[in-house]
Design a protein around this nucleic acid. Structure first.
Lengths: 171, 171
DNA sequence: GGGGCTTGGTTCAAGTTTGAAACAAACCTA
DNA sequence: TAGGTTTGTTTCAAACTTGAACCAAGCCCC
């Protein structure tokens, strides 16, 4: 089967998406680094913890929720623990496991910086989208995530054919 | 003015978006690392070059197109040059400037890996979206990017008020 | 035509991410 | 219940990113 290249519409969508996601993550990261002294991911860790029962969660569950590797999480948690934002504790029912528990200091940071964060998310994203588009964004994102959840296996690349073009496209 | 928290719809959209973008970038990165030996950004650099007149572009233009910092680009280009994918050259009309020029080897890598890349982008993204959603994604992305283009200034945070909540939300 | 500002690019240190390997506890299963 | 596999987490080195500082070369303007 010869490669199905992207249509012009798909090309445009893909490139616009890449640009937007880079710019957006950048803006969010910069704001949180400024106001909360940590990148977005780290803030998200605290945020997820703050909404969990007892404000604690097992490492693996946390990684799963945030869609990041355990290794990445370990590093982040180590830093956040060093900063007093959370505390590691042994897991009661599984001696292999460990849990991350939000500290009061961590919760306070979250409380203090949440408004600025929300304001930024609004300013960068929601203020620029119609109500309808917000719904569309959710559906699109959910569709993407659903397909990628679980493992990072890419879909059926049994054969990887190709042919010549004057310029290999697609970002 | 008291903080306008995200509505439930916005919350859902935001979280779905974050998850999707993480998963998607991960999948794309993994595939390209496998098949082209470089992360997505690096591949994009080659790709943009391949479509430019004479397959060369000034550093600043390249950074601008890719929405990345010059510093990040410098690092990437250094690596790609070391790998023979491109070559740095002095800029003719501005002695401060330098250009990155795609080599034949770089073009060949692009040609060889483009089909697999497109297949992955399809599998992860476009195969899961309706034609309509592709259009929506483009519009949404464009709207976001338009607002964030140029500088990373966040929109009017004159005052950063806040109030207590049982759990500061918004990832 | 010599300061002083801006622009294009790199450098450097500190921080983060990646992926593979290491470990240890838990879970089989013969 | 010993031996082997799986699961939860960390560790380590190499790669990448960030942001501030730096160095030129252009630009401006008196």
């Amino acid at each position: 089967m010869t490669t199905r290249w992207l249509t012009p519409e798909e090309q445009r969508a893909w490139r616009a998406y890449i640009a937007a996601s880079l710019l957006l993550e950048d803006a969010i990261d910069r704001q949180l680094q400024q106001d909360a002294g940590m990148p977005h991911l780290y803030y998200s860790i605290l945020s997820v913890l703050s909404e969990s029962p007892e404000r604690r969660l097992r490492m693996t569950d946390l990684a799963e929720r945030l869609k990041i590797t355990r290794s990445r999480l370990t590093y982040a948690v180590t830093r956040l623990e060093k900063d007093g934002m959370l505390r590691r504790a042994a897991c009661a029912d599984d001696r292999r496991g460990s849990v991350a528990a939000l500290t009061d200091a961590g919760f306070a940071v979250l409380e203090r910086s949440a408004p600025g964060h929300v304001e930024t998310v609004r300013g960068c994203l929601f203020d620029r989208l119609s109500e309808e588009q917000v719904g569309q964004l959710e559906e699109i994102s959910t569709a993407i995530a659903r397909g990628l959840e679980g493992d990072g296996a890419r879909p059926a690349p049994d054969d990887v054919p190709w042919r010549r073009r004057s310029s290999p496209a697609c970002s």
